[in-house]
């Protein structure tokens, strides 16, 4: 399997945008149980715009592509998801730099930088019941499996994200609007951890499609 290149980045963003659009109602439904019923709508709007911007950009290095996605998300998503997913892609951008392709290790380092950025921006830690509970195990699983190559590492990451999302569903939320609910948030899946799971599944499938 080849490195993670610009074509893979395009497929990743495009696949994620498609799936957010398909699952827009589901994400909004999850958010109406614990938040303000806009997660699916906002993510769909932001990633559709990001995909369009990437298409306009044409050929570019990985850092420029990720920066374009991040800036577009910050400008179009709003809510908490805009700054958080925007920061995720901006940190990918800084880490990937002017590379046209990233090795498995380089992609892992970029994902780690993205995780750090999201945690700095949102100040969430493990078990706060946020997107971090899908993102953190995904990055750790990627690192642990990176010796097997990019495909298996991304498969492990996607699996860990989904498991993280399941694991926190029974918890009380400690960040974001769901935290206002106290025990009433228990048993509801977290919308942000759900969209982060879809992100890693999209990344896995975009690379596997090469």
């Amino acid at each position: 399997m080849s490195d993670f290149d610009g074509a893979a980045m395009s497929r990743f963003v495009s696949t994620f945008a498609d799936r957010l659009h398909e699952r827009r109602e589901e994400l909004t439904q999850l958010d109406s149980a614990v938040g303000d019923a806009d997660h699916g709508i906002n993510m769909d709007r932001g990633f559709s715009a990001a995909r369009a911007k990437l298409a306009e950009l044409g050929e570019a290095d990985l850092g420029t592509m990720a920066k374009t996605v991040g800036m577009t998300l910050i400008s179009t998503v709003g809510g908490a998801s805009g700054p958080l997913y925007g920061t995720f892609f901006l940190r990918l951008s800084t880490s990937l730099g002017e590379r046209d392709a990233a090795s498995t290790g380089e992609l892992g380092a970029a994902l780690r930088a993205a995780l750090d950025g999201v945690q700095q921006r949102g100040k969430a830690i493990a078990d706060d019941k946020t997107m971090v509970d899908a993102l953190l195990p995904a990055v750790e699983a990627f690192d642990a499996a990176s010796g097997d190559g990019i495909g298996p590492a991304l498969a492990a990451a996607a699996q860990a994200a989904a498991a993280g999302r399941e694991r926190i569903t029974p918890l009380v939320a400690r960040k974001g609007r769901a935290s206002y609910l106290g025990e009433r948030a228990m048993g509801h899946p977290d919308p942000g951890a759900t969209s982060t799971t879809i992100l890693f599944e999209s990344l896995r499938d975009a690379v596997a499609a090469d």
């Binding site: 303000d36 806009d38 910050i74 400008s75 179009t76 998503v77 709003g78 805009g82 700054p83």
Partner: peptide, 8 residues
């Protein structure tokens, strides 16, 4: 947007 923070 409705019930959504404005953007920077």
């Amino acid at each position: 947007a409705v019930f959504t923070s404005p953007v920077p």
